[in-house]
Design a protein around this nucleic acid. Structure first.
Length: 423
RNA sequence: GGAGAGAUGGCAGAGUGGUCGAACGCGGCGGUCUUGAAAACCGUUAACUGUAACAGGUUCGGGGGUUCGAAUCCCUCUCUCUCCGCCA
């Protein structure tokens, strides 16, 4: 959520930012400015009235204490006259506040100055590439065929017990999942991230805090009876751990990591995008989250990007890092780097991580603050990234490492997987 | 699922209609003392809103009500805890 003072001070900045993000409903900005003005005028009126009522009530108390019953009664009548008026103003004020809030939460975050303009993924900017292309001259099977060949994943069985997009991992496939999760968590912990195992369902306030509500209502699974949402990412419960808290500056940056399954309805997806593990409704992911001071948050972001990059290198995958253009960024993000790994068998790039700085967009909703050196409380910046999402990593590991003898795993996984080859 | 208790500042915990934004304690910050630290002592320390700055306003889990006046009384919702039942 954008801070209201920005609308008063620099409306143009907001309009420019929204344009870069290709946000259409820019009328909202003017409406918000307008409502804010009316709201403040009404606030002044309301406060003045409340002030005089408070003073009168106090006087009555004093008169009563002195035993001047008559004087008290007289004053009571006087104050009673303004009650209806005060109530009316207070009601109008609260209506305006609600209206303004509803508009504010519909506006996305503003993009950082380094975000390239653009509308589609084609406009994303390649920051750098790494790793090397595997040699797949002997065989070049897509991961869904490899999964079948080595009995790693049963997509049909998932259809039966739940529906499409809910794969069943089994045998060496299940073991590889567990190996990856453990490896990722250990890697994050070694870098100073504290491990959490959060709830996989959250309440409305949490989903709202990180920006899934109201923006992505239809993308989350909703347990209606209890009004809980299945988490689309561990970012939601983990960031919300600090909702409504004031952090000591000495504790920053807060570094957290968590494994969780992620549930996404992915309404509107189709075709080759959804084949095999490319897009599923339930998948596993290890997430990293940081809370940082406003001055240090972009260094923190760079650090997180490097962290994920080294992790990908350790898996021996060919990757590239993209700086997302305004039109491809998420609602809450100010700057996002996407990591893609190259699937040699499918001959396409697959997104495996997304690392973002949200600045104060989430923390303003969640009221996550810290006391700075001068004792002033201000909002922290929140950042997060996947480190890493499993399905596409698994897809690329299977495809890019296939040999006639089996699938050769990168060395970092050997101890976790228990052996060097799937076969 | 049944019965009961409760929700107050960073924490802990008083306060049951009138100078209560809220005692005492812990913690934090500043100071005295000390070579330095600890201890002791003194002072200070809620958030939000609002203003150029003051003033003013709001907030004692959320919402509503009673009253001139509500942390305190009533209604309602949410959550937590204890006991019983069921159960991984």
């Amino acid at each position: 959520m954008l801070p209201i003072h920005l609308f008063r001070q620099n409306k143009e900045l907001i309009l420019d930012g929204l344009k870069k993000k290709n946000f259409r409903d820019t009328d909202l900005v003017e409406k918000i400015v307008n409502i804010d003005e009316r709201r403040r005028a009404l606030q002044v009126e309301n406060d003045a009235l409340a002030s005089s009522q408070n003073a009168a009530a106090k006087s009555i108390g004093q008169l009563m204490a002195k035993g001047d019953k008559e004087g008290a009664e007289l004053l009571k009548e006087k104050v009673g006259l303004h009650k209806e008026q005060a109530k009316d103003i207070a009601q109008k004020l609260s209506d305006l506040e609600t209206e303004m809030q509803d508009m504010l939460v519909r506006l996305p975050n503003l993009p950082h100055s380094s975000v390239p303009a653009g509308k589609t993924p084609e406009d994303n900017e390649v920051v750098r590439e790494g790793g090397s292309m595997p040699d797949l001259t002997a065989q070049k099977l897509p991961h869904w065929e490899l999964a079948d060949k080595y009995k790693l994943i049963d997509f049909e069985l998932g259809n039966k017990i739940t529906g499409s997009g809910f794969p069943v991992f089994m045998g060496q496939g299940a073991r590889l999942q567990r190996a990856l999760i453990n490896y990722f968590l250990d890697y994050n912990m070694a870098a100073g991230y504290k491990e959490f195992c959060p709830p996989f369902m959250v309440n409305e306030a949490s989903a709202y805090g990180t920006g899934q509500l109201p923006d992505k209502e239809g993308q989350m699974y909703h347990a209606v009876a209890d009004n809980f949402y299945l988490i689309p990412t561990a970012e939601v419960p983990i960031t919300n751990l600090y909702r409504d808290t004031i952090i000591q500056e000495s504790e920053l940056p807060v570094k957290m990591t968590a494994y969780s399954p992620c549930f996404r309805r992915e309404a509107g997806s189709y075709g080759k995008d959804v084949r095999g593990l490319n897009r599923v409704h339930q998948f596993d992911k290890v997430e990293i989250v940081q809370l940082a001071t406003p001055t240090g948050s972009y260094d923190v972001l760079d650090g997180m990007v490097k962290h994920v990059e080294v992790l990908l290198q350790s898996l021996g995958l060919q990757y590239r890092i993209l700086r997302l253009c305004g039109g491809d960024m998420s609602f809450a993000s100010a700057l996002t780097y996407d990591f893609e790994v190259y699937s040699a068998a499918q001959e396409r790039w697959l997104e495996v991580s997304s690392v973002s700085n949200f600045e104060t967009f989430q923390t303003n909703r969640m009221k996550i603050r810290y006391k700075d050196g001068s004792g002033k409380t201000q909002l922290v910046h929140s950042l997060n990234g996947s480190s890493l999402a499993l399905p596409r990593i698994m897809a690329c590991l299977l495809e890019n490492n296939q040999t006639p003898e089996g699938i050769k795993l990168p060395q970092v996984l050997w101890s976790y997987f228990g052996k060097e080859m799937i076969g």
